[in-house]
Amino acid sequence: MTRPLILVSNDDGIDATGINILADAMSDLGEVWVVAPATEQSAVSGAISLRQPLRIDERAPGRLAVSGTPTDCVYIALNHALPRRPDLCVSGINHGANLGDDVLYSGTVAAAIEATLSDVPSIAFSQAGRGAMNAELLATWARRIAAGALKEGMPRASFLNVNFPPELSGSSGVRVSKLGRRNYGRQVVAKEDPRHLPYYWLGGSELGFDDMPGSDCNVVAEGHISLSPVDLDLTHYRFLNELRQWDALQPLTDPRLDGSPGDTDV
């Protein structure tokens, strides 16, 4: 019987600690292929390289470093590098949280999204904080969650976003949660280079999160593991129905604007 094929990627780069933990954890579940960026690609979201060539460096059998983004890695894995279609794609384990609206910026999540767009069940894993990773506990929970996905299956166009708390412990449990809202200081630092040309550095410190019971932010703050199902259908259905009622969108009533020639002065 053929073992499941599991694709592993990330945005911290192929040499990151988290991807090694994740790949080792997945080896108990199936045949593992690692296809990941050659260098760190944090916060690149779903960027794909369309205007420059990509290069693949085979570090070892089934372990490929790609000179591109996480989306590039998954795209090239699915459409070129892998020996067959994967049964699961896992991304991470990111060194830093991807909570709430972080999913819109995260390269870790983008790798999972790219696989999801090709109907491959996918999971993004991240650990909040910047402290040391508890490899044994992270591997245990990642393996359990991935095994659940392989066994139970997942809805089309949906993926799982998993965040581990900074102090992951034996008492940490899994909480199914909605996406929350994180708050950042939005800064643009303007400076000059040695040639007196201006440059700008974007970013800002983390200011906390909205207190939303049941959200991934709250769950992780409480020391538990958040498991959030994310749907790629971004349509706001309630607003869609309201939008149909806007006066500005009703049919034109001025005959001069209906496209007919109308009267002209002679």
Rank of each mutant, 00 (worst) to 15 (best):
I14G: 07
D247R: 12
H236P: 13
L5M: 09
P166D: 04
K151Y: 05
H80R: 11
A248G: 13
L202A: 15
L22H: 02
D102L: 04
D15N: 11
Q41M: 14
G131K: 00
N79I: 01
D57T: 07
I225F: 03
A77L: 06
A23K: 01
V219E: 05
P165A: 07
M1I: 06
F209D: 04
D11K: 01
P4D: 04
F159C: 08
A157L: 10
N241Q: 12
S118Q: 12
R51P: 00
D258Q: 13
G153T: 08
S45N: 14
D11Q: 04
L54F: 06
R3M: 12
C217D: 09
Q250K: 15
E136Q: 12
M133K: 05
P229Y: 00
R59G: 03
V220G: 03
R3N: 08
L7Y: 01
D11H: 00
D231V: 14
G262S: 12
V120P: 08
E206S: 13
I14A: 05
H224N: 15
I21S: 02
L99C: 07
G96L: 09
A110D: 08
D87I: 01
P229I: 09
A149H: 02
A43C: 14
L29K: 03
G30V: 05
A23Y: 00
R51N: 13
D57H: 14
G129M: 03
M26H: 00
G153D: 09
I14S: 07
S67F: 04
M26A: 01
D12F: 11
M133C: 06
V176W: 04
S9N: 06
A135V: 05
Y199E: 10
L99Y: 02
V66I: 15
L99V: 03
D101H: 09
P61C: 06
G131V: 06
V162P: 07
L78N: 00
A221T: 00
W33R: 03
P166N: 06
T235N: 13
D258F: 04
I225N: 03
M212T: 14
R144D: 11
P53I: 01
I6N: 02
D119L: 09
R195G: 13
E136H: 10
R63N: 05
T116Y: 08
G180I: 04
L5E: 03
D11P: 07
V74M: 08
V220R: 01
N163E: 07
K151L: 10
S172K: 08
P261Y: 02
P53E: 09
I113M: 13
L88W: 05
